[in-house]
Design a protein around this nucleic acid. Structure first.
Lengths: 326, 326
DNA sequence: TTGTACGCGTTATCAC
DNA sequence: GTGATAACGCGTACAA
């Protein structure tokens, strides 16, 4: 920077003022500084700026697994939305483990991200003002002390279940996961399924509840086979995610069960590949773009003012009808 | 840090030496410093360290689109491999555009990544020593001036084509993309297809060549329909990527063409979802883990010694036989 | 409107 | 084995 200053015949401070578009710089000086910058190929030193200002210009995004279609799609949008606010995104992977989530938070402090968007699955307690601004995605209701963006778990799954009922399904199974004694995404979606049945006077049959590991495609496939083998007259399946729903359909297919003729299947998320699966997958589609934009908006606002009261938002959703429930 | 020093009754320099595990520190001092760090909850300031040392501890990974299953899977592995070398990964998206790739390089300098792994699709010229160490993934053969990791394009596609021939296919179409007048991934894979045919004395029929946009699932699906509608006796299709191959199968299905009974399809990449598609997709599987590890190894080596001669590696591959070519 | 002095938190160097 | 000193490049505060 002082090289540029010398080249332009001004002080380093004037260069700084030009770069950051601060108020008082004469047109003449500005021109010369700009020319000197072009000529010397100067670039501001991010480290120095960070050290001085305390801001890194980076927000972290912690997700279970970036290779998962849902999180890949979501990361894509977060990156775009962050860019629009002048922020850069660093991605952490938590493996959907409490330890991984805690590590992401620690990492976020250590690396001095200006804020963190945490897709929390497991973490159960978290002190606020423990570090940098955190926006939570997901169900972990940390006593309302954090900004949070959620998807319509109960409502979405209830609507999905109703859709199956409307299509004529009478024995509707549900695929869920995690620990149903805790209030997780799985629990909420399961509750949506249950309340939809109960609203129609149907008593949920515990034998129709299948548990699966959320991140394992092979596990999902095996669950599909179990459903096919169950011999419980199942004619519809509500699955808590598209990736798992596709695995379930694959498992059904392994057993010669045809979707939608023998059994209808509906998922949750509307990941990009769901429209191209065979059969194409009906699903609950939360507004992902809205969700990404909101999450970024919340961190950015909290970076600007850490004392803001925590806010919570739930994304709107629609039911997408495709071949798997036709 | 000086707080810790005071607490431990040593100088800041000794604290620094303890943290960085440098040679001469007495056990007594080390103990006291460690205790002081625990007590005070001290964390090193990444910005200051970066400013002073010139190293950010971050390597960039620039890919066309993180939401694409192939790049998502690959990013996952790169993150893991980088971690093992003590590096953190920042992800950039290029959109498979030359401008996006150039921007990623500029960004990498501006943000002062210690190195960049660039999945280059479009960029055609690039000055070396232009900034920080760059490792190229892909076909852009920038005159051997960069470290590079490639996949076995010709060999893999040739093997895929031979596999179809062995399965009895006689009219084999190919789905490719980009500009066949340039030496891209598309061109190389197309060449592998062509040479496999020619080795068997079959003259490639240009009508069997279908072009598609690599990142559009809908485009792939439309191509599948075009292939079904072509009425050229096609009984096998070699596709340059799994994501597009699944789109093609979906398009075939739209026209009632059954895979593999009416037509066999083989892809390239072995993305995680290929095994779970209906039908499961046969494909060329380069060793992704090897590729990620190599790319990281190359950047890390070049960060350590920028004057190393450029090296090139090609990942090993296998053909995975699944239902789509049964 | 422009310039000077100082400090952000580390670490390289070198003297002790 | 340890510590004093300086410097990395920028921006705030204030003086000119």
């Amino acid at each position: 920077m002082s090289d540029v200053a010398r080249l332009a015949g001004v002080s380093p401070m004037t260069v700084s003022n030009v770069i950051n578009d601060r108020v008082p710089v004469s047109d003449g000086a500005r021109e010369r500084v700009l020319a000197a910058i072009r000529e010397s190929g100067y670039q501001v030193n991010a480290a120095a700026r960070h050290l001085r200002s305390g801001r890194s210009g980076v927000i972290g995004l912690a997700v279970p697994q970036i290779g998962n279609p849902y999180f890949g799609m979501f990361a894509e949008m977060v990156i775009e939305e962050a860019q629009r606010h002048g922020y850069h995104v660093a991605i952490e992977q938590t493996g959907a483990l409490a330890t991984g989530e805690a590590a992401a938070i620690a990492q976020s402090r250590r690396l001095q991200f200006d804020g963190l968007i945490l897709s929390a699955v497991e973490i159960e307690s978290l002190a606020p003002d423990h570090g940098n601004p955190i926006v939570l995605l997901g169900e972990q209701d940390l006593a309302g002390r954090f900004d949070r963006v959620t998807v319509p778990n109960e409502g979405g799954t209830a609507a999905a279940t109703e859709h199956l009922i409307e299509q004529g399904c009478e024995r509707i199974a549900v695929v869920t996961g995690g620990d149903l004694n805790r209030l997780t995404m799985f629990t909420r979606r399961y509750n949506g399924y249950r309340s939809a049945l109960e609203d129609r006077g149907i008593k949920p049959d515990p034998r129709l509840r299948f548990m699966v590991d959320a991140l394992s495609r092979e596990g999902a496939r095996a669950t599909g086979r179990r459903i096919a083998d169950a011999d419980l007259g199942i004619d519809g399946v509500v699955v808590f995610s598209d990736v798992v729903a596709m695995g379930v359909m694959r498992g059904l297919r392994d057993r010669g069960v045809s979707v939608p003729d023998d059994m209808r299947v509906i998922g949750f998320d509307d990941v990009p590949e769901s429209a191209g699966y065979i059969p194409s997958l009906s699903t609950v589609c939360p507004d992902h773009r809205w969700k990404a934009a909101k999450a970024v908006e919340l961190v950015v606002a909290r970076i600007a003012d850490p004392d803001l009261p925590p806010r919570e938002f739930t994304a709107p959703f629609t039911i997408i009808r495709r071949e798997s429930t036709a």
